[in-house]
Design a protein around this nucleic acid. Structure first.
Lengths: 104, 104
DNA sequence: CAGTCATTTCAATATTACTTGGAATATCGA
DNA sequence: TCGATATTCCAAGTAATATTGAAATGACTG
């Protein structure tokens, strides 16, 4: 993951509706959830949700598959792990500190 | 960490100057770096950097200490770990899947 | 094939965020 | 104390982002 991708990923998560959508999809797991069900569950209007899903999708944080007239969205956990790795990269100058005990 | 905090943390990182600042501070470690040196290293104007440091600080992602006429900023790795935990919370409905192998 | 449901797109509006330059505050060194 | 450096604050202009409602597209069902 490079800076541009990380920035897109962070921006896609830095909005309350999108953060809620992503967390919901993380909790649901690989089965995913249809857009209409996400909209119902989180009380977001269809057009607004579509806008936010496009953002998440474009950032690579969610994937989608068609299932009849439904579009099922899933969280991309690999992308999340990539983001986490990017943020913790070269912690403390690469010293063997482990992220958790990096603070003094 | 609650949703509001996570949103603040993500928003604080979702901007190229701030992401660069945070990553620089993560790599530097607990010793931290003076604002003026950060500005020089990343080629950001002092007033713009001050604005961004305030954002990061308000979100709890960085801390600061006074050292003479310098203000030394440090990354708060604990806050980052909190954010990571929040994002991966209840992955796959709490099933014992481990985040890395959560995807099918 | 007609009707219904799921989803996306569009345009207009409203809101929020970033940058810039200059001024203010505070600390250090001569 | 005086001058220089470090940092922050403020206000104005510009740019990016979010919401809304209506309309369009596509896919199932009877």
């Amino acid at each position: 993951m490079d800076t541009k991708q990380a920035l897109a990923a962070l921006s896609s998560l830095a909005q309350d509706s999108r953060l809620a959508v992503f967390r919901l999809l993380v909790q649901v797991g690989p089965e995913g959830m249809a857009a209409s069900k996400i909209a119902e569950r989180l009380a977001i209007s269809p057009s607004s949700l579509s806008f936010h899903l496009k953002e998440l999708s474009h950032a690579g944080m969610v994937g989608s598959r068609q299932d009849g007239r439904f579009v099922i969205y899933t969280a991309d956990v690999g992308a999340m792990n990539g983001l986490i790795g990017f943020l913790t990269e070269n912690c403390c100058g690469g010293l063997p500190c482990g992220v958790s005990e990096c603070s003094p």
